[in-house]
Design a protein around this nucleic acid. Structure first.
Length: 290
DNA sequence: CACTTGACCTGTCCGC
DNA sequence: TGCGGACAGGTCAAGT
C-alpha cells in the first residue's frame, strides 16, 4: 500500500485513538507476521499502555509504557484497523451493514485493549510485519540506519535533496527516487506523480537530469505528498486508514493508473510502461526522454 | 560500492 | 466458465 501519505494517515488516526489504552491480548495467525517470542509479548506488551504513535519513512511505531515499541511495516497490502465496541450505529441500523466484520480472512494479528476495543493487522499478501522491541533499539535496525531524510522535514533543503542523488548517477531517476536511502517514503504512486509534475521522463538516467530539475522534482514531490495527506492517501486497492476508510487522492492523480486518458496539462494520451521493474505512468509529450 | 533481478504471498484481471 | 499468466502500493538477498 502504503507510501508516506498513507502511513502518515494511519499514524494520525492511531495517535488520536490509541494513547492511554492498555493492551490485554495479542494473537497472530502466522509467526511471519508477528515473530516475537510469547514471553516478550507477555512481559512487555500485555498490560502496557500506548504512549504515542510515530512514523519514519513507511514504518509505524507504537510506543509503549514499558519502553518497548511495536514496529510495523504494512508493505503492499497491510492495514491497521481500530474497532471500538461502540462503533455500531445500533442494531438494525442500515449503516451497520457497511462495516465489514473483523477479523476476516486477511487478519494476521489481533490486539485487544482493556476497554474492549481492538486493533487488527490485516495483510492479504503477508509481506508486512509487526515486531516488538525495546524503544532504544529501533534506531539501530538496518533500515533505520540507512533510510534517507523525510521529504516533508522543514530542515531538508532542495540542495540537500539534489546531493542525495550523487550516489545513483547510473540508474534511472525512477529507480533513484524509489530508493529509500536517497529519500524516505516515496513509492510507485508518488514517484510517477512527482516526475510528471517536474516534467522528467521516468527512464531518464540520473546523470542526464539537468541540475535545476532536481529542485523542481523536490517541490513537486512535496506538493503531491502534502495533497495526498490532505486527501487521506490513495486507495488503489487495499489501503484503508485506522478507521477502515479509504483515501481519495486517486481522484486527483494526474498520471498514476491513468494510461489511455488525456494528460491534464497537454491532452496527450498517458502511457504505461515498465521502469525499474515497476509499472510506470507518464505523458510522452510533457516528459521527454533525454 | 552501485546496479539489476528474483523472491516473498494472495488475489484479481485479462486473453484464450 | 475454466485455466494460465501477468500484475499489484515494498523491501531484501543474491547475482553481476
Amino acid at each position: 500500500m502504503p507510501e508516506l501519505p498513507e502511513v502518515e494517515t494511519v499514524r494520525t488516526g492511531l495517535q488520536r485513538l490509541l494513547p492511554g489504552k492498555m493492551f490485554k491480548t495479542a494473537a497472530s495467525d502466522t509467526p511471519k507476521s508477528f515473530p516475537n517470542a510469547p514471553e516478550d509479548v507477555k512481559q512487555f506488551l500485555i498490560a502496557s499502555k500506548v504512549v504515542a504513535v510515530r512514523r519514519r519513512a513507511k514504518v509505524l511505531m507504537i510506543d509503549l509504557s514499558t519502553d518497548h515499541t511495536l514496529v510495523i511495516h504494512l508493505k503492499m497490502t497491510g492495514q491497521l484497523v481500530f474497532r471500538s465496541p461502540t462503533v455500531s450505529f445500533g442494531a438494525g441500523h442500515p449503516s451497520d451493514s457497511l462495516i465489514n466484520p473483523l477479523p476476516d480472512k486477511s487478519t494476521r494479528v489481533e490486539f485487544s485493549f482493556d476497554d474492549g476495543s481492538k486493533l487488527f493487522f490485516n495483510d492479504q499478501r503477508k509481506f508486512g510485519w509487526v515486531r516488538l522491541m525495546p524503544t532504544a533499539e529501533v534506531p539501530n535496525i538496518d533500515f533505520m540506519k540507512k533510510v534517507g531524510p523525510e521529504p516533508l522535514d522543514d530542515r531538508f533543503t532542495a540542495a540537500q535533496f539534489t546531493e542525495r542523488f550523487a550516489r545513483r548517477r547510473n540508474t534511472t531517476i525512477k529507480a533513484a527516487i524509489l530508493d529509500q536511502t536517497v529519500v524516505a517514503g516515496v513509492g510507485n504512486i508518488y514517484a510517477d506523480e512527482s516526475l510528471w509534475g517536474a516534467k522528467i521522463h521516468p527512464a531518464t538516467l540520473v546523470r542526464d537530469v539537468p541540475p535545476k530539475k532536481f529542485s523542481q522534482l523536490f517541490t513537486e514531490l512535496q506538493t503531491v505528498l502534502r495533497l495526498s495527506i490532505e486527501k487521506g492517501g490513495s486507495s488503489n486497492r487495499n489501503y484503508v486508514d485506522a478507521e477502515g476508510k479509504k483515501g481519495s487522492y486517486m481522484k486527483f492523480a494526474r498520471v498514476f493508473r491513468r494510461e489511455g486518458q488525456a494528460c491534464p496539462r497537454c491532452g496527450t494520451i498517458i502511457e504505461k510502461t515498465r521502469v525499474a521493474g515497476r509499472g510506470t505512468h507518464f505523458c510522452p509529450h510533457c516528459q521527454k526522454l533525454v
